[in-house]
Each structure stands twice: as structure tokens, then as C-alpha cells.
Design a protein around this nucleic acid. Structure first.
Lengths: 138, 138
DNA sequence: TATTGTTATACTCTATAACTATA
DNA sequence: TATAGTTATAGAGTATAACAATA
């Protein structure tokens, strides 16, 4: 299937967007003394208690990495391990109060950056944009 | 400035999109035996010969990292250093023929993934989506 | 037997500081 | 003196293979 001109310009827009998001997230992480992957993990854990394996899937990395990432965030007091009462093999990382607060600051900073970047676009078009992005959520 | 509901849903859509892009790029890189950062570098060098410093800016990382990244891609035969005739301090990484071919495969794979993800959206709306994303290019 | 989280290993990415060679 | 690229260093992310505990 040959890509259409619309697919090409959409791809190009997404590559630009990807760079903007990477830069934005780097700045937010840096200001909090964390890495991009760490703030991503904190965001994923918001209102959510996945197992290590599920968390790896959400983060898009191997489960063997999650052990170390959770260890480091535990050492920072942002995450704890909770035992699963039904299956003693399973352990569920979850946010501490401080971890939840940091995650909240991350989301706020990101929303602010988004609002600023699309400040020239009408609220109606911003809603349209969100809908067009989320094709798989419909 | 308080974020509007539109900003919130746009942010949420962008977070989902971010995860999709990360997964997609990981798969593409993996299939080529490269890392995500390496295929990004190859894409950035398409029709473009930045200095090391400019390349660092485009990749969103420190210039000290670019030396090693270019070294590794040079060892793989995908990139070479070209001297700048005007300023002998400056060296410009550029794609070899093979590097250009690999970059082309990366872009093709990404366009295909994009076309598939938005296959349920009309060409007109895909064009609209691209325009709404690229607010700063207008 | 199969699955969950962990460890060991090796490589890549990352930023900071100090260096060199050019300008 | 300022700038471009490099090196040294330390820490973090990444996947593969092998492992212990549990199911």
C-alpha cells in the first residue's frame, strides 16, 4: 500500500512533535532531578498498580530493567513495593505520597507546556486535535 | 493560567501518542539491529549536514554524547565525518550510501505504521491533523 | 511445568568537567 | 579569549541469559 501525501505530511508533523515532546520532557525531568524514564514511570503509576511485568509493557522496556528503576525510585522515597495478597510471586510498585506529589508536578508542567505550544489554536480545534490523535480510544 | 478541559484531553492524547511512538520506533530500530537514538540520528542527517553541536541540539542531548554515537555509527559504515573547509574546528557528520539507505527504510517503516494507525481517519482529516500538530511551522 | 521477579553481564545513552586545536 | 570537538568519568537505561521462589 503506497503512502499518500497526507500520510507523508502527518509523519513529518509527528517527527517534529516527537522532538518537541522529548525536549519538553527532558526539561521537566531535569528540573526535578530525575530522568525522562523516571518521570514516565511516576506518571504510569498514577491511579494504577501494575505488576512488574505489566509495568514493563506500559513503559515499553524489558521487565528486567524495571527492577533497577523501581529500586532507584524507592531509594529516592518516591515508590514502594506492595505485595499481591493473591499471588506471592507478584509485587506491585506503587507511589508514595511524595511520589504522587512529584507525579502531579510532572503532569502540571506538561499540561502547561502543551497549553503554551497550542495557545494559538482555538479550544474547539484543540479538542478536535485530541480526538484525531486518539483514534484507538474511540 | 488555569488549564482548560481541552488542554487536559489534548495532554492525555499526547501521552498516549508518546507511548505509541516509543513502541513503534523501538520495533523499527530493533528490526535493523540499531537503537532508537541511532535511527533518530540517521533521520536527522537526511538532506542535512549539521556540525556536532547543531546535531546535539537536534537530538536533544549534550554534544559530548554525539562523538560516541557518531563513532559507533561510523564503525557500522553508516556515517562519515566531513571536514568543514571554512573552519577547521568544525566537522560535519553525514550519511554514507548505506546510512542513507537505512534511513530510508526507517522513514518508510514509520510512514507505514502511521498510515496504519490512522487508517480509519479520512485523508482530509489526516491532513487537518498534521496541520493542527505543526502549529509552529505555519 | 510455567510464570514472576531478580541477578549477572555487556553495551548504549546521558551529563559534567577538563582538555586540544583551532579561531 | 572564545569556540568546536574530544576524552574521562560516573550513573542510568537497555536486552539476553540464567536463576530462585511460587504457582
Amino acid at each position: 500500500m503506497e503512502p499518500t501525501p497526507e500520510d507523508m505530511s502527518l509523519t513529518s508533523a509527528l517527527m517534529t512533535l516527537q522532538r518537541w515532546m522529548h525536549g519538553t520532557r527532558s526539561v521537566i525531568a531535569r528540573e526535578l532531578g530525575l530522568t525522562v524514564q523516571q518521570i514516565e514511570l511516576l506518571c504510569v503509576l498514577h491511579n494504577h498498580k501494575p505488576s512488574f511485568g505489566e509495568l514493563a509493557g506500559l513503559l515499553g522496556c524489558d521487565k528486567t530493567n524495571v527492577t533497577g528503576m523501581v529500586d532507584r525510585l524507592t531509594r529516592l522515597g518516591l515508590v514502594t513495593r506492595e505485595a499481591d495478597p493473591r499471588d506471592r510471586r507478584i509485587s506491585r510498585p506503587s507511589l508514595t505520597d511524595e511520589g504522587g506529589a512529584v507525579g502531579e508536578r510532572v503532569r502540571e508542567a506538561f499540561v502547561r507546556a502543551v497549553a503554551e505550544r497550542w495557545s494559538g489554536v482555538s479550544p474547539r480545534d484543540r479538542a478536535r486535535l485530541a480526538r484525531l490523535i486518539d483514534t484507538d480510544r474511540v
